[in-house]
Design a protein around this nucleic acid. Structure first.
Length: 426
RNA sequence: GCGGCUGUAGCUCAAUGGCAGAGCACUUGACUGUGGAUCAAGAUGUUGUGGGUUCGAAACCCAUCAGCCGCCCCA
């Protein structure tokens, strides 16, 4: 094997060998199932966008520090999309008058962020996005949470392993107001709330006082953040939890006043799913309600709710918990061996006959010792091997071996399909 | 962008300044028409890269690259 001479992959990019590709496709299949169960339509947006799309709305840091950005041949600044929502807003705005509302769209595709790779985070990742636009209600919020919960359920993550924590920006703003925290400090306070669990309590207290809150306000804030019954003061959240119960996913959801989410554009309900068994401390998915997004790209005001899930964290979790199905290397359960030069084409035409009946068949590509061919079949996860040797050829027969239980039988050529199907179905 | 840890065979790792090794995997054979088990034999290296210290470096020092963990950030 060459080693030092191999040109390295770009830092933080993903190489999907067949096993990893199977895992990615598995996640994709569950994402699709969860989305379609609720009637969401699949869509996608360009992978390349001009930087202006993000400059308008996304945070400074995202555009300047964390996006892959380069000039094209005409000198325009092109960005590898770091998120989907601005593209969504534009595409909705462009056809705002002709879409059937509510719009329920989902997407699963690649994104890029120029961050430092570490556990649960790479520079290239796949992200599931689900959004509903045109309905502004706690019940719509509940549906999105239910889509997420349904995915968790389909993937085998029970409420014991994963929890969706919910909060509401309006509720928190009202609480901050009641403490006399001025509106211009809300952002700083939200930031402080976000990092509370990451800091030592004493340090966090100092940090909050540094922002400019009084000791009294700090005490009040801490009271709010430890009050897990606070949701009862929010009509929206009361309705949300009622709807979640009706939708059958309540056991996945908990109110948590500490959930804020960094995104500026969330205006109401926000939520974040976490692994509760403690291996990865990053969010599995997160989202919330945004009211002003379309207006920011020139459309008419239209409220939406949505969330996004990266493939990296969920992939680690599912793998760790043994929830990814065992990898079978070959998609073809049948392997036809090539006995020798003279019987080569005999095997090829048998393989073709079987394929014509709809069975997936691979053949050894050339004559080789049978042990080698059987070993290959075994390593590729084939269930059936077929041998046409001189004896079979002379008798117009074929030997079929069931690799699962090591039995084999020699049957007339006309019975091959039937025999193979019996093994594959049994 | 900042801090810490780690780079040795395809993989997981040993060798603490004195001949670069083991297990797994691989190849071959036992078994010339049958995989997964067992046994035997064999092959495998620019010790990430570049420099320095030393009689002597995988080990110590400097630089650099890569990976991991954390910080920042997570839209």
């Amino acid at each position: 094997m060459a080693s030092k001479s191999v040109i390295q992959s770009v830092k933080g990019t993903r190489e999907f060998y067949p096993e990893e590709m199977a895992q990615r496709n598995y996640i994709y299949s569950k994402v699709r199932e969860a989305s379609q169960t609720f009637g969401y339509q699949e869509w996608d947006a360009p992978f390349l966008e001009t930087i202006d799309l993000y400059a308008a709305k996304s945070g400074e840091e995202l555009v300047k520090e964390q996006s892959f950005c380069f000039p094209d041949r005409g000198g325009d600044l092109i960005t590898l999309r770091p998120e989907l929502t601005p593209s969504l807003a534009r595409m909705i705005a462009q056809k705002q008058g002709e879409l059937a509302y509510p719009v329920r769209w989902w997407s699963f595709g690649p994104f890029w962020r120029y961050e430092r790779p570490q556990r649960g985070r790479s520079r290239e990742f796949f992200q599931w996005n689900v959004d509903m636009l045109g309905v502004n209600s706690p019940e719509a919020d509940a549906e999105l949470i239910a889509v997420g919960a349904t995915f968790l359920k389909l993937a085998g993550l029970t409420p014991q392993f994963a929890t969706i924590f919910v909060n509401n920006r309006r509720l928190m703003d009202a609480q901050f107001d009641a403490l006399g925290i001025p509106a211009e400090k809300r952002l700083d306070v939200s930031g402080a709330v976000d990092r509370r669990t990451k800091m030592e309590p004493v340090k966090w207290d100092e940090y909050v006082l540094e922002i400019g809150l009084s000791q009294e306000q700090l005490d009040g804030l801490k009271q709010i953040l430890t009050n897990f019954d606070l949701w009862q003061k929010s009509d929206e959240l009361v309705r949300l939890f009622k709807a979640l119960e009706a939708l059958g996913v309540k056991e996945y959801v908990k109110f948590d006043p500490n959930i804020m989410r960094g995104l500026l554009y969330y205006t109401g309900t926000v939520f974040e799913a976490f692994d509760t068994s403690g291996s990865v401390r990053r969010a599995i998915f997160g989202g919330g309600r945004y009211d002003n997004l379309l207006r920011d790209v020139g459309g008419d005001p239209l409220s939406g709710v949505g969330f996004a899930m990266g493939d990296v964290v969920i992939g680690i979790l599912l793998k760790e918990k043994g929830l990814i199905p065992a990898f079978v290397p070959t998609p073809a359960p049948v392997l036809v061996t090539i006995f020798d030069e003279s019987l080569w084409m005999e095997s090829f035409s048998l393989a073709a006959e079987l394929r014509a009946t709809g069975i997936k068949v691979t053949s050894y590509p050339e004559p080789a010792k049978l042990p080698k061919q059987f070993k290959f079949a075994d390593r590729m996860g084939a269930k059936v091997t077929i041998v046409i040797g001189p004896d079979e050829a002379a008798a117009g027969k074929v030997t079929i071996k069931n690799l699962t239980n090591s039995t084999q039988e020699t049957v007339a050529r006309a019975d091959v399909e039937k025999t193979v199907r019996k093994i594959l179905e049994g």
